[in-house]
Simulated assay, not measured.
Amino acid sequence: MTDLAIYDMDRTITRRATYTPFLLHCARARAPWRLAFAPAVVGLMAAFGLKAIDRARLKELNHHLLLGYARSDEEMKPLVEQFAEATIRDNIRPGAIRAIARDRAEGRRLVMATASYAFYVDAIAERLGFDDVIATRSVRGSDGRLLARILGDNCYGPAKLRMIEEWMAEEQIERSAVHARFYSDHHTDMPAFEWADEAVAVNATGQLEKLARTRGWRVEDWSK
Rank of each mutant, 00 (worst) to 15 (best):
H187S: 15
Y117A: 14
A199M: 04
R109H: 12
T188I: 15
A135R: 07
L65H: 12
R140M: 12
E85S: 13
Q207M: 10
R145P: 02
I13A: 04
T136G: 06
P94A: 08
C26Y: 15
I124N: 05
I100A: 12
H63K: 07
Y7M: 01
G107C: 11
D73R: 14
A40T: 08
R98I: 13
V139A: 15
F182R: 01
A204I: 00
G49M: 08
F119T: 02
H63M: 10
R55A: 14
G43T: 00
I124E: 09
D8N: 03
I173E: 08
F48I: 01
P191W: 14
A101V: 05
F193Y: 11
E81L: 15
E106T: 04
T18S: 10
I100Q: 07
F193G: 02
R71P: 01
A105K: 09
L23P: 03
L65N: 13
I100P: 05
L24I: 15
R11M: 02
T2K: 15
A199Q: 02
M76A: 13
E81H: 14
P39R: 11
Y183C: 03
T18E: 01
L23R: 09
R98Q: 15
N62H: 03
A180N: 06
V200Q: 03
T114M: 01
G107W: 12
D54E: 10
L161H: 05
A27L: 13
L147Y: 06
E165H: 04
Q172P: 00
L147F: 07
I13P: 00
E220N: 10
R93K: 07
A201G: 01
Y120T: 05
K51T: 12
R30L: 14
I134D: 06
L67A: 13
D132Y: 07
G95C: 04
M190V: 10
E81P: 12
P191H: 08
D90S: 07
G152T: 11
W222S: 01
G49W: 04
T14K: 02
A84I: 01
A31I: 04
A29S: 14
D122T: 10
A99H: 06
D73I: 11
G43H: 01
M112V: 13
W33Q: 13
R98F: 09
T205Y: 06
A17K: 03
Y117K: 06
R108W: 14
T12H: 00
P21D: 04
L161F: 11
R102H: 14
L4T: 04
Y117G: 12
G95A: 07
S138G: 03
A212F: 07
A196N: 04
I124P: 04
L50G: 11
G206I: 05
A101H: 12
N154A: 05
Y117N: 09
W217F: 11
S184V: 05
W222R: 00
T87P: 01
A196S: 13
E220F: 08
A201R: 00
I100F: 10
Y117F: 15
A31P: 02
R104G: 04
E198I: 05
M76H: 09
A135I: 09
V200H: 08
L61W: 15
H64P: 00
L151R: 15
A96R: 09
L44Y: 05
W33F: 13
P78C: 07
M9V: 13
F37E: 08
C26L: 10
T87H: 06
